[in-house]
Amino acid sequence: MIIPKTKEEIELMRESALVVSRTLGMLAKEVKPGITTNKLNKMAEEYIRAQDALPGFLGLYDCPSTLLTSVNEAVVHGLPTDVPLREGDIVAIDCGSIKNGFYGDHAYTFAVGEISPELEKLLQITKESLYIGIREFKAGNRVGDVGYAIQNYCEAEGYGVVRELVGHGLGRKMHEDPEMPNYGRRGRGKKFIEGMTVAIEPMINLGTHRVKQLNDGWTIVTLDGKASAHFEHDVALVNGKPELLSTFDYIYEALGIKSDEEKEFRAD
Rank of each mutant, 00 (worst) to 15 (best):
L40E: 05
L40N: 03
N41P: 10
N41L: 02
N41M: 01
M43H: 05
A44I: 02
A44Y: 10
Y47Q: 01
I48C: 10
A53D: 08
L54T: 06
P55Y: 10
P55G: 07
P55W: 10
G56S: 04
L58G: 05
Y61E: 15
S65K: 10
T66C: 13
T66V: 14
S70D: 08
N72D: 11
V75G: 03
G78A: 06
L79G: 08
P80I: 01
D82S: 12
P84Q: 01
L85S: 04
G88T: 00
G88K: 01
A92L: 01
A92K: 00
A92F: 04
I93C: 08
G96P: 08
I98C: 07
I98V: 14
N100F: 12
F102H: 08
Y103Q: 05
D105Y: 12
H106R: 01
A107E: 15
F110T: 00
F110G: 06
G113N: 06
G113C: 06
E114L: 02
E114A: 09
E114N: 12
I115V: 13
P117M: 04
P117T: 02
E118F: 10
E120R: 13
L122F: 07
L123R: 03
Q124E: 15
L130N: 06
L130S: 08
L130A: 08
R135P: 03
E136A: 13
F137D: 07
F137A: 07
F137H: 07
K138M: 13
